[in-house]
Amino acid sequence: MSELGKYAPLTYFQLMEVSLRELLVEKGVVSDAEVDAVATDMKTRGPERGAKVVARAWTDPAYKQRLLADGTAACEELGLDVPALRLVVVENTPEVHNVIVCTLCSCYPRMLLGLPPDWYKSREYRSRVVREPRAVLAEFGTAIPDEVAIRVHDSTADMRYLVLPLRPADTEDWSEQRLAGIVTRDSMIGVAPAKAA
């Protein structure tokens, strides 16, 4: 951050980033334009792609079956690229609530949700959600009744999960587009429900 018009010096790791990138550019491995284009693309990428998939599944039962059978192919059907990954979509029901984590690192369905929030990568979330998911969800303000089972899915480098949240009550006459507007990132991670309000 700049203060009083003075730039803060680069940190050691920022220095490393600039140096690594310049060396790779000098060697013709990457170009600055390519790096900027990808960085900008990630900046604009939020959970809209995931929301589109969920809203389609809520309104088209046949699509939902295909999505649950093969998440990667069902995303490609909507023109969404899921590069080199197996996507597994897990459906919330009145009996089962699903939540995703990556205990070893930070694997996340970024192609559908954008970059993960910091807490998803934190020691606290990664350590505890597999052991005491009900308590962790409560910290997110999400109370799961005792009679509802919680399934925690641990992602890997090659396989990502996406939660298909429950469609809120009283949304029967909503359009797919309107439904997509209420599908939040957190509902697709499984730490919050999708809400109509």
């Binding site: 205990t103 959600v129 052991r131 962790v136 997110f140």
Partner: peptide
């Protein structure tokens, strides 16, 4: 670190 004890999840972003 899966399953190890840890503190409250801070919902930082």
């Amino acid at each position: 670190m899966g399953g190890l004890p840890a503190g409250k999840v801070e919902r930082s972003e």
